[in-house]
């Protein structure tokens, strides 16, 4: 039996996997991209843009798939996999590169001394419970709170409460750490402004001293002076008023400027349309509403009868 016509029909139905391009296409298999640098056929594009672009895309995809199939494959129960190489195209960042965090005092010191941070495991084995506990934090291995017994050191007062002492020391440590954090943040803020943190701190302290000295009833005038202490002079800005006997014309001008501003706001507030229309019709003049108008009319009507 001759099956050539059937085969030809099948060939026509499915396009060839072979694609010819004048300039070879560039691939970035890691990102699954093909870059076709060939010139477009403008005549074909004008004639039927959709068909032409679809054809172009199909050819490109075919080439890309050919490349992928050429990669070394690995067959697993889930199917056949090809390992893609690393991408070669450089993609732009969406966000700017994060800035370096300012170094803390300890980090600076450690850098000078050459102290390196050693990474410890998060969990440690605890013999007492025969299991793992976090190194620090909630339920941590370093916690001494649930020790049922505490040794009293030789040189310590035997009546001293060791538990209270431990908890006091802990709160003190936390407080110290907090002040250090605050100082680091302040120093970083000063450094970011380009100010020497040490000088800035000095100026701040000096300002505070001055403020506290000026905070007495006499603004520090009758306070006891310490030895070698600089005499403090608190300078405050004085309120300044215009002279009473200023030229009347100048004063009037100043007041008129304020009035103009006030009236501008006042005029902007209300534009009563009916009043405006009436004003135009009647050329101003005061219009008054009599509250007893109707009553009077009624009475007049009655008297006529």
């Amino acid at each position: 039996m001759d099956v050539t016509p059937q085969l030809d029909a099948l060939k026509l139905k499915y396009k060839s996997v072979q694609v010819d391009k004048l300039i070879p296409v560039d691939f970035d298999l890691g990102n699954l991209v093909a870059f076709d640098t060939n010139a477009l056929d403008t005549a074909a594009l004008k004639q039927s843009p959709d068909n032409y672009l679809q054809q172009l895309a199909r050819d490109g995809t075919q080439l890309l798939l050919n490349q992928i199939f050429a990669l070394p494959t690995e067959s697993t129960p889930d199917g056949v996999f090809a390992a893609l190489p690393a991408g070669t195209s450089v993609l732009p960042r969406a966000k700017p590169i994060p800035k370096d965090k300012p170094m803390t005092r300890w980090e600076k010191f450690a850098k000078i001394k050459g102290i390196n941070k050693t990474k410890n495991t998060r969990k440690v084995y605890d013999e007492s419970v025969d299991g793992y506990k976090p190194r620090w934090g909630y339920g941590g291995a370093n916690s001494t709170e649930d020790d049922w017994i505490k040794e009293v050191p030789d040189n310590a007062d035997p009546m001293e409460d060791q538990y209270a002492k431990a908890s006091e020391e802990k709160t003190a440590r936390i407080a110290k750490n907090k002040t250090q954090q605050l100082r680091n943040a302040q120093e970083a803020a000063h450094a970011a402004k380009g100010v020497n943190p040490r000088e800035a701190r000095k100026a701040e302290v000096r300002k505070r001293i001055l403020e506290s000295k000026g905070a007495t009833a006499s603004m520090g005038r009758f306070d006891k002076q310490l030895k070698n202490e600089d005499a403090v002079k608190v300078k405050r800005t004085k309120r300044k008023f215009e002279s009473n006997t200023r030229d009347a014309g100048v004063e009037k001008e100043g007041v008129m400027n304020v009035v103009k501003k006030v009236l501008k706001v006042e005029d902007g507030k209300v534009l009563n349309m009916t009043t405006a229309v009436k004003h135009v019709h009647q050329q101003g003049g005061e219009r008054v509403v009599d509250m007893d108008e109707r009553k009077k009319k009624k009475q007049k009507g009655r008297s006529k009868k």
Binding site: E242, S243, N244, R246, V258, V259, K261, V262, L263, E266
Partner: peptide
Amino acid sequence: MRPLTEEETKIFFEKLAKYIGRNIVHLIDR
């Protein structure tokens, strides 16, 4: 006794304008 500051003048005239409107000008320009 002293003249009013600009802020005081503004507050004062804002209140006056509620009663006599544009006529505040006549108080100054006599």
